[in-house]
Design a protein around this nucleic acid. Sequence first.
DNA 1: GACTAGTTCTTGAAAGTTGAACTACATTGG
DNA 2: CCAATGTAGTTCAACTTTCAAGAACTAGTC
Lengths: 171, 171
Amino acid sequence: MNTASPGGDERPARWLTDHEQQAWRSYIQATMLLDDYLDRQLQRDAGMPHIYYALLVQLAQAPHRRRRMTELAIALKITRSRLSHAVARLERNGWVRREDCPSDKRGQNAILTEEGMQVLQQAAPGHVEAVRQAMFDRLTPEQVGQLGEIMRILAEGLQPQDSAADLPWLR
Amino acid sequence: MNTASPGGDERPARWLTDHEQQAWRSYIQATMLLDDYLDRQLQRDAGMPHIYYALLVQLAQAPHRRRRMTELAIALKITRSRLSHAVARLERNGWVRREDCPSDKRGQNAILTEEGMQVLQQAAPGHVEAVRQAMFDRLTPEQVGQLGEIMRILAEGLQPQDSAADLPWLR
DNA sequence: GACTAGTTCTTGAAAGTTGAACTACATTGG
DNA sequence: CCAATGTAGTTCAACTTTCAAGAACTAGTC
């Protein structure tokens, strides 16, 4: 019905220990719940899903409030296709506009509009408060450190290999 | 364009410390990357997204390999609507079938078919290996413990409101 | 110049998700 | 028993995401 797992099928398959299983289940539950929670919060208070908000944040922090599409896609760790649709939607809302890249005619810059900046400024406090209340108010400073370190390790291991390799305009 | 944040706008809004921001960014990145990674792995090797796989696992572990729809939705922490669609799709594939609940005519049981069980058994080792390779092989046993504890705390805090209400002994 | 290969971004269709409206049945209180 | 209200699950419309394909451009090579 689908491709068999590649070579070495006879390997006895290391299972997870109870300890690991418990951590895994908690991880899945917590990340799903938190993701849903923040998505709903932002949908309600700012009219957009979490990733769209993150996109506006990226633009707000960038010099001149603008950034190349590919750069954005990499920073947000999403596909260019997804980004295209997202920017198209934000553009329809008037939060973002596009501009041809002068140095590379294939390129596009996404630019945060004044209106987009205002939406962001209105949404930010509520969002930060939600994050704080859902995560940081519940963890000790020590746990925050542990979480940061663990997540840093996991993210590093999942980075699409090339990542830093070729972005000449970032150098 | 959207609802203004409710009352008390003048509150100075506690921001995140650098320490917290760093942890937050790593968290967002790691969870996005891991989710994508596992979704792709399961789509490739088992022809379904992660949550659908989790649904089959739930059924496989349930007595008689069957479970009430609402019960499943709660266990998976998804909406009933989403579950309806998921079961419909899995039913079209022949992995799951439905059955009227004898004791409550409104109810439906989802049942794992023999074919579904086989798909699951084929997919499981590869999935476990992916989880292991992406997470547990990179963390020390101590970190696994920390992660489990942290995620347990977060999940608990996000449980749809009632949760703590009728578990007085947890207070 | 023109060929080839690679990059950038968009597009359209299919698959998945969401929230609200809806159907059908169950339960409760008079 | 009956009306009112609640619960189980589905369906609809709007939206987001993914996948595969393609248009437009750049750069290296002969």
